[in-house]
């Protein structure tokens, strides 16, 4: 009896720590089991990790999947052109239709305006002009609809590309830099494609045209919109020559700042109402 009691005591002394650890382990296992099998508690633990991953994937999505998506779309478009056309046709068609309708409305408004003018003094002037020049009246009305207009003028020193003066109806980019780039483009074209005696005189882009008039020590770049016609060109040439003779020659002899002011004033005087003059 005493022996058995002694043995139990000894076992208790020797294994007491192990039992404690066993109990703790069992408790931990129970907690883990609870966490894994309880949706709410599992969500609590995993949610922040998933959220981080979501943000990470969102940020790196273009980098990780961009090339594959692009390649896949390109392949899809190549392989199913008919289907793509079928899908895009109504959208593009609607866009074109909307654009044409819009442009037709504008044209219609302008024709209405011209028709209103037909019985006015303006209309009579067109009739008399058409009669004198032998141009059909409808051609004159149409040319009125797409009348050329001066948008900007730059007077630029030929060698340096420095802006001597400018005139614009709207706020443009930095004019000094535009003058420099125009000079560079002009020099590039003349060096690359023409001989020393030939000079760039026109740049066309969409509805705009840059007409360049070259003089000895400077050139004038006139940006116009609308349809350029011979009459407008003649008038522009004459005005520019007159401007060059009267203003620029006089300005050349003054101080730099005085000359720039004189050119700016001259440009305003000559071209402010250029489009309205008859």
């Amino acid at each position: 009896m005493n022996k058995g009691l002694g043995f139990d005591k000894l076992r208790e002394i020797l294994l007491e720590k192990d039992w404690e650890e066993r109990d703790q382990l069992a408790q931990k296992l129970e907690d883990l089991d609870d966490q894994i099998n309880s949706r709410n508690r599992l969500e609590e633990k995993i949610q922040p990790i998933l959220a981080d991953e979501r943000v990470n994937l969102k940020n790196k999505f273009p980098e990780l999947f961009g090339p594959q998506i692009t390649e896949s779309i390109s392949k899809q478009i190549r392989e199913s052109q008919d289907e793509v056309v079928e899908v895009l046709y109504p959208i593009i068609g609607r866009m074109i239709k909307k654009y044409i309708t819009n442009e037709m409305e504008k044209l219609s408004e302008r024709i209405d305006h011209q028709m209103e003018l037909a019985f006015s003094w303006e209309g009579w002037k067109i009739r008399i002009k058409a009669w004198i020049s032998g141009t059909p009246q409808k051609d004159m009305i149409i040319s009125k609809l797409i009348e050329p207009k001066i948008e900007e003028i730059y007077v630029i020193e030929r060698n340096s590309g420095m802006l001597l003066g400018s005139f614009s109806k709207s706020a443009a980019l930095d004019r000094d830099m535009v003058a420099g780039m125009l000079t560079a483009i002009k020099a590039f074209v003349e060096d690359a494609f023409t001989g020393e005696t030939q000079e760039l005189s026109n740049i066309d882009y969409d509805n705009f045209k840059i007409t360049i008039k070259n003089f000895k020590s400077f050139f004038v770049a006139v940006v116009t919109s609308g349809g350029m016609n011979a009459q407008f060109r003649d008038k522009l040439d004459d005005t520019l020559l007159d401007f060059a003779q009267k203003v620029l020659k006089r300005a050349k002899h003054g101080a730099e700042s005085d000359a720039q002011n004189e050119i700016a004033e001259g440009l305003a005087k000559y071209f402010e109402n250029f489009d309205k003059d008859e």
């Binding site: 590309g161 420095m162 930095d174 000094d176 830099m177 420099g180 780039m181 560079a184 483009i185 590039f188």
Partner: peptide, 30 residues
């Protein structure tokens, strides 16, 4: 401003105003 033109036509133009002894000077840098 004209970064793209450097490789196209061989020149890029920038502008900066500097003050030299109280005088404002616009540098057009080609």
């Amino acid at each position: 401003f004209s970064e793209a033109y450097l490789t196209t036509i061989g020149v890029k133009i920038d502008k900066k105003e500097v003050d030299v002894d109280g005088l404002k000077v616009n540098l057009l840098i080609w």
